[in-house]
Amino acid sequence: MHTYIRRFFYGDIPGQESGGAPNPQGPKNDWPLWEVFIRSKQGLDHKHVGSLHATDAQMAIENARDVYTRRQEGVSIWVVKSQDIHASQPEEAGELYDPAADKIYRHPTFYDLPDQINHM
């Protein structure tokens, strides 16, 4: 029995009404993943907003512009390759964060402030 499978990528679909199913092995999997950080207005920090695929930094910025700032969400964009981000492991949470739990003296809440000082 001969089975004939023709692969179509998005955008290469010939004149067919139905279009083609996206191929899970398609080109998008070749493109590296980037993390996107947006500054919503001057003076604020860049905040992580999500991720996207792009071939290079330039395309990543433009994709981020189109995907994450089309409703005026930002005035500045940072992109970082996801593979360049190193993260702490959830299973290390105990040794990393729990020791701070019983050290309340690290919070600056034990000072009597003069009434004249506001905004502290």
Partner: peptide
């Protein structure tokens, strides 16, 4: 809905 990848579809 037919862009080569999602990001370029939006672009």
């Amino acid at each position: 809905g037919h862009g080569p990848v999602l990001e370029q579809d939006i672009a």
